[in-house]
Simulated assay, not measured.
Amino acid sequence: MDENHSHCFDASSFTDITDERQFYKVLFSFLSTVNRLNITRPIMFNTTVDNSSLIIMKGLESDSILIKSLNEVLQMGFEKAVDAYEEYLNGTVVKKYKMGKSKEIIDVINSNRRDNLNLLKEMEDLHSQGDGIRSAVAILASLIVNKHSLFLIDEPETFLHPPQARLLGKNIVALSKKKQCFISTHSIDFIKGVLEADSSRVKIIKIARSENENKFNLVDNGGVAEIANDKNLRYTNILDGLFYDQLVLCENESDCKFYSAILENLDLAIYQNTLFCAVGGKDQFKKVVPLLKKLNIQYSIIADIDLINNKDNLKQLVNSIEDDCYNQIDACHTKFIEVFEKGMNSQVKTQ
């Protein structure tokens, strides 16, 4: 996601830094799966303290606006809220997050300090909850508290259900204004959420790896949005084709099952990374093909043979693949239809 510009970093520029593992923290936030879970772990002051985690916790602890912003987005996705809590354990100070229902946490935040501590003590520890909510809290809290202008986020949808991944995408966009986020993802639900929030700020780059070579293709945001918003296509798995080597379009689900079983049996190495997608009838092919071209998705079409009986339908489909392409087969197709009509009896033509 880009506010108004983009940056490119060369890792070799850090080689002269004494401790590049620490130096990167000054420039940007790197939120890997492991880093995110570390952020939500208790901080024990008798051990080495992770400064980045402590900064986030202190920010949420001291600024009511920041904790309110975090809990508003957590309420939307999880119907939960968090607050920072401090206790003494075996002679050392331990700081951690407590989690509860939104109203309970709001009551805690609004109470006096002594009541606050007593109420929080009885609530669940965030670090003992599922990795999904822990990861989401870490991402959202980092965007809210950290002053960095650049965030690298690795697969933010990890551990989340599809609706939560979609909402997380929306919230990341909302919280990253005037910031840049470079995000790797394998979730079309997350991508949909990002585009729904503000597609003008988003560039999607599909990376295809072949042996030791990476190929980069810029994906058309409008094509994704058009499929996601089309009442006939939004419930298909077409957009999942972004994560496959190729897409095979069929008319219905039974065709998908039939042809995928045959082709995977013939050559599993090729077709195990192929997505079979039902488009809901042959009339949909001509609508889907231009969108797949915009998205740089490799595709094939398997249609019922009766597609070739209707000249107009075949012409529209072939021309959707390439302008005026039908002219190349017009004479041959016309001749075929003539021979077919004359040479076959009605029962054979029906079958």
Rank of each mutant, 00 (worst) to 15 (best):
H127P: 02
N90T: 14
Q298E: 09
D330P: 04
E104F: 11
Q328K: 10
D115I: 15
A331Q: 03
N217M: 07
T185Q: 00
D2P: 14
L60K: 02
L70G: 02
F340K: 15
I308L: 12
H148R: 09
Y259G: 02
I308W: 05
E86K: 14
Q351C: 06
T92L: 08
L195R: 05
M123T: 15
V145G: 07
I105Q: 08
L275M: 00
L239I: 00
S102Y: 09
G241H: 01
Y85M: 12
S346L: 09
K80W: 06
Q246D: 12
M344L: 15
C325Q: 11
E251A: 03
A138W: 12
D312P: 02
Q272S: 12
V145Q: 04
S12H: 07
I188N: 00
D63P: 13
N309R: 14
I105S: 08
E211V: 13
V318T: 14
I109Y: 06
T236Y: 11
S12G: 05
I139M: 04
L218H: 01
N214S: 13
K286T: 14
F336A: 02
D283Q: 11
D304P: 09
A228D: 02
F30P: 03
E253K: 01
K98E: 10
K315S: 09
M76W: 01
G132F: 10
H186W: 06
S29N: 06
T47N: 07
Q328V: 07
K96I: 01
D154A: 06
R36V: 10
N146H: 09
D220E: 13
L27A: 10
V137A: 11
E87I: 10
D83A: 08
Y85S: 12
K335T: 15
T48V: 10
S64D: 05
R201F: 10
T158S: 15
I204R: 02
I144K: 00
F243N: 12
L247R: 00
N46W: 11
G100R: 05
D283C: 11
N71I: 04
E196N: 01
G130L: 14
L233C: 12
C256L: 01
K349F: 06
A303M: 10
E155H: 01
F159G: 13
A303V: 15
I337H: 08
N313S: 13
L126S: 14
E3I: 02
F159Q: 08
F14T: 05
N90I: 07
L60E: 03
S199Q: 12
A11Y: 07
E213F: 09
C250T: 15
F340D: 12
D230F: 01
E104Q: 13
K287Y: 02
F258G: 02
N327Q: 11
I183C: 05
L249H: 00
N273L: 07
S184M: 11
R41H: 08
K80L: 11
G193D: 04
L317D: 01
K294E: 03
L160Q: 15
S200Q: 10
V93R: 15
C256H: 00
K294V: 00
M344K: 11
P156H: 10
I301F: 04
G223W: 08
D16K: 03
L126N: 15
D312I: 15
A81H: 10
L268V: 00
L314F: 14
K170F: 01
P162C: 03
H333S: 09
A84S: 14
Y244Q: 00
I238D: 06
M76N: 13
G193H: 04
A331P: 02
